[in-house]
Computed example of a mutant assay.
Amino acid sequence: MAELKSASDRQKAVDSYLRAANVGAVTLVLFSIFDFYDTVYGPADLDSALSIVLLVCVVAFLWAMVHLFRHRDADEFTLALWHSGVTAAFIALIVWALFGNMITGLYWGLTADVQATESAEMQMVDYWTAPVCIAAFFVAFHIKRFRGH
Rank of each mutant, 00 (worst) to 15 (best):
V29A: 14
T39F: 15
W82G: 02
V29C: 13
F99K: 07
A49Q: 10
H71C: 04
L18Y: 06
V29Q: 00
L55P: 05
G42W: 01
W96Q: 12
V23N: 08
T27P: 04
N22E: 09
V53S: 11
F61E: 11
V86Y: 02
F61T: 06
D73I: 06
A89S: 15
L30S: 06
L62N: 14
A20P: 05
F99A: 14
A64K: 03
S48T: 08
R19N: 11
I94N: 00
F34V: 02
N22Q: 03
V26A: 04
A13K: 06
F61R: 00
W96A: 03
H83N: 13
D15S: 12
M65Q: 10
V26K: 00
D38R: 05
A88G: 13
Y17C: 02
A25G: 12
W63E: 06
F34Y: 14
D47K: 00
M102V: 09
L54F: 11
F34W: 02
P43C: 00
F36D: 06
M65C: 07
H83M: 10
M65D: 04
S32W: 09
R72S: 08
H71T: 05
L79E: 14
V95K: 02
W82C: 10
R72D: 09
L30D: 01
V23C: 11
L28Q: 14
H67T: 08
G42C: 00
Y41A: 05
S84N: 13
L18E: 14
N101A: 15
F36E: 02
A49H: 05
G100A: 04
A49P: 04
K12M: 11
G24W: 05
W96F: 13
L50Y: 04
H71N: 14
V86L: 11
A74D: 02
A80T: 07
A97N: 08
A49E: 00
F77T: 02
A92M: 07
N101W: 12
I33R: 07
V40H: 03
G42N: 01
D15Q: 12
G42P: 05
S32H: 03
S48G: 05
V95I: 14
A25K: 07
A97M: 08
A20I: 01
V59N: 09
N101S: 04
Y41T: 10
A80P: 03
A49W: 15
R19G: 10
G42I: 01
L55A: 08
L30F: 09
L18K: 14
V86K: 13
L46F: 08
S84T: 06
W96N: 06
V59H: 10
F34G: 01
W63V: 09
H71Q: 11
W82L: 04
A25S: 15
L98F: 12
I33S: 12
G100T: 06
S84I: 00
N22I: 06
F69M: 04
F34S: 03
V26C: 01
I91L: 15
K12N: 12
G42H: 07
L55W: 12
A13F: 05
L98P: 03
V56K: 03
R19T: 14
M65F: 10
T78G: 02
V40L: 15
W82K: 07
D45M: 09
V53P: 06
D75C: 07
